[in-house]
Amino acid sequence: MAFALLTACGDAAVTLMHVHGLAYSPDGQRLSIPSHHGLAIYGARRWSKAPGPEHDYMGYAVTRRAIYSSGHPAQGSGLTNPFGVIKSTDGGGSWEQLGLQGEADFHLLASGFDNGALYVFTDRPNSRMSSPGLYFSLNDGVDWQRAAAQGLSEAPVALAVHPTDSKVVALATSTGLHLSRDAGEQFQALNLGEQALGIAFSLDGTSLWFGSYGNGAKLSRLELSTGQVSPLSVPELQKDAVAYLAQNPTQPQEWAMATFKRDVYVSKDGGKSWSVIAKAGQTLK
């Protein structure tokens, strides 16, 4: 059953104390940003806070049917810390616990927009994951399978899953972009020589957008069928880079990006130009 993020509430100024992800609602009407104090929402050219508990959301993925996350519960919520993996089908108003409560806080968590595959990277073992590494589940966390991740020599800093093909997964590391087409068994190294950062598959499944940093911040698009990499424009960033990327499901030319210094930008023309909607965590009207 499809869902929409809950209508945001309140007119008080919204400050992005931290940015732990970036995603559009399935109806394309709202952009959500998880942080230490709940979800910040941008829609209809205004910022507000989503209703519901102000959990500290870490790994965060919005799919057509649900939101998946990890992190820490809000004070007084009565939920076990850390979350393990949680799921919401009402836009974050309520959450179902999928396991590993009190055991795991996944900073890297991603899911395919339409395929239901859930991937996480863990740096320590837990009751369902016998050793550190990349794991995936095809049944909402009931069973987890470890991926061999051959060809990957470093811990990733970002993780993305193809929207329809559950076996296609991308990782970003300090040495470049890595792509697997066999559920993480083997990774091909791409764009070596520059640090890869924020990554996101286009929702039509044809390309992978990725931020990188060499002499400065860059944004590029990898065509999955040909391997061709094309540069995209990026706002002028001072000692900053692209941390998160998201595409609007109903307006494919609209993309959003968030940076490590908590700037947030929106492009209406497929990454040719960008408009700022938050600067250094201060939201703009």
Rank of each mutant, 00 (worst) to 15 (best):
A2T: 13
F3I: 09
C9G: 15
A12K: 12
H20D: 05
S25N: 03
P26F: 09
G28H: 06
Q29R: 14
R30I: 01
L31T: 06
S32T: 12
I33A: 05
H36D: 12
H37Q: 13
G38T: 03
A40T: 04
A40K: 03
I41V: 15
G43V: 00
A44E: 14
R45F: 04
R45S: 13
R46F: 04
Y57C: 01
M58Y: 07
A61K: 05
R64G: 13
S70H: 02
Q75R: 15
P82T: 01
F83C: 04
G84F: 00
I86W: 01
S88D: 07
T89Y: 02
D90K: 10
G91Q: 07
S94C: 04
G99E: 02
G99L: 11
G99N: 01
G102I: 01
G102Q: 07
E103Y: 01
A104S: 15
L108A: 10
L109D: 04
S111K: 02
D114F: 11
G116M: 06
G116V: 09
F121M: 03
D123G: 15
R128F: 11
R128V: 14
M129H: 11
M129F: 01
S130A: 15
P132R: 08
S137I: 02
L138R: 14
N139M: 07
Q145W: 07
R146P: 14
A147Y: 07
A147R: 05
A147H: 04
G151R: 08
E154V: 02
V157Y: 00
L159Y: 03
T164A: 08
S166T: 04
L171E: 09
S174C: 00
G176W: 06
L177D: 10
L177F: 13
S180L: 03
S180G: 08
A189P: 11
N191P: 00
L192K: 14
L192D: 07
L197R: 10
F201N: 00
S202I: 03
G205C: 07
T206N: 14
T206L: 13
S207V: 06
S207E: 10
G214Q: 12
N215H: 12
A217R: 01
K218Y: 03
L219V: 10
S220Q: 14
Q228W: 05
V234A: 10
V234E: 04
V234S: 05
E236S: 14
L237M: 07
D240S: 12
A243I: 02
N248C: 10
T250P: 01
E254G: 00
E254V: 15
A256R: 07
M257F: 08
F260A: 14
Y265F: 15
S267W: 09
K268C: 03
K268T: 10
G270M: 06
G270E: 04
W274Q: 06
V276F: 00
V276L: 12
I277L: 12
A278G: 11
T283V: 14
